[in-house]
């Protein structure tokens, strides 16, 4: 099926078999390997991307459903690939990652959350991240990163 969508700000048109998952399209066809696959039961959240601004597990969405949508992957968080997005910077500053495998999904989930939560509590962050599994960090520094990243994303926007 022919679909077209905006991927990290660029118009993209592809012909995909209807059974293709969004994550397969991104990784296997379009070479965006920053989005990871950590399970086969929609539990781990390593594959989270944004579709029209909302975080979505891309292993649980058909590629054809993205037709006409705006899709952002971890590669699109920092538009120039050099200057880090505030959430990327926060994960780096707060040691919010170890092996890095869950990190793209964590950050994509976190940026969606932080967009509407400029000053979240620790409990709110923990509740939101329930769908993203990390095996390395014990989550403590991820929670710290998300709180710091949310604050940085909203810096200067407070009334």
């Amino acid at each position: 099926m022919d679909i077209s969508f905006t991927l990290n700000g660029r118009e993209t048109a592809v012909d995909v078999p209807p059974a293709t998952l969004l994550v397969e399209l991104l990784r296997e066809r379009l070479g965006l390997t920053g989005t990871h696959v950590g399970c086969d039961t929609s539990q781990c959240g390593a594959c989270v991307v944004h579709v029209d601004g909302r975080s979505v597990k891309s292993c649980t969405m058909l590629a054809v459903s993205a037709d006409g949508c705006a899709v952002t992957t971890v590669e699109g968080l920092s538009p120039d690939g050099r200057t880090l997005h505030p959430m990327q910077q926060a994960f780096r500053d707060c040691h919010g990652l170890q092996c890095g495998f869950c990190t793209p999904g964590m950050m994509m989930s976190a940026t969606d959350f932080a967009a509407s939560h400029p000053a979240p509590t620790e409990a709110e962050v923990r509740h939101w991240l329930e769908g993203n599994i990390c095996r390395c960090t014990g989550y403590q520094n991820i929670v710290k990163s998300v709180i710091a990243g949310a604050a940085a994303m909203h810096q200067g926007t407070e009334a």
Binding site: R27, G31, L32, T33, G34, T35, H36, V37, T73, V74, E75, L77, S78, G81, L84, Q88, F91, R92, D93, H95, L97, G100, F101, T103, P104, M107
Partner: peptide
């Protein structure tokens, strides 16, 4: 210091075996 390895991981540029073609 901030970790050297983190820049590639937070920008989605890690190179895991499943990424290799």
């Amino acid at each position: 210091p901030r970790r050297k390895e983190d820049f590639r991981f937070v920008t989605g540029r890690g190179n895991y075996v499943a990424d290799i073609v």
